[in-house]
């Protein structure tokens, strides 16, 4: 009986609880912050740096098939894409389309 539901219990405890306690703590902390407060500058900076650290790792150390592609191609696609995005008025669609196109073209060119 327990064995049958054990995976669900693991997901509820080691997944749901392990994640949502930090969300609840964020609500409690954020509820005390004023929108113009100095502390919110710091919290915003930490949140942004955290998300970008996760993002950069997805490019440098990806999982799955992407891990078998050359690092220079992934970095080149993301870097050139970002430069084009900055140079053309910061349209998100450009910032997504250009690196994707470079990655696909690069993979085709090296015969992946």
């Amino acid at each position: 009986m327990i064995a049958e539901y054990w995976t669900f219990i693991v997901i509820a405890v080691a997944g749901f609880l392990a994640t949502d306690i930090w969300r609840w703590l964020g609500v409690v902390a954020g509820n005390r912050l004023n929108e113009e407060s100095e502390a919110l500058y710091w919290v915003r900076a930490v949140a942004t740096a955290l998300v970008m650290a996760v993002t950069a790792k997805l490019i440098v150390f990806p999982n799955g098939t992407l891990a078998d592609t050359p690092l220079w191609l992934r970095l080149g696609a993301a870097g050139i894409g970002f430069a084009v995005f900055l140079a053309t008025g910061r349209k998100v669609a450009v910032g997504v389309a250009v690196p994707m196109a470079i990655l696909v073209a690069g993979l085709w060119w090296i015969g992946f």
Binding site: V51, T55, L58, P62, L66, D68, A77, R90, V94, M100
Partner: peptide
């Protein structure tokens, strides 16, 4: 693999 690349480049541009 290619689809997986969408997520990081989207975050970079939108953030």
């Amino acid at each position: 693999g290619v689809l997986f690349f969408l997520t990081p480049v989207y975050f970079i541009a939108s953030i």
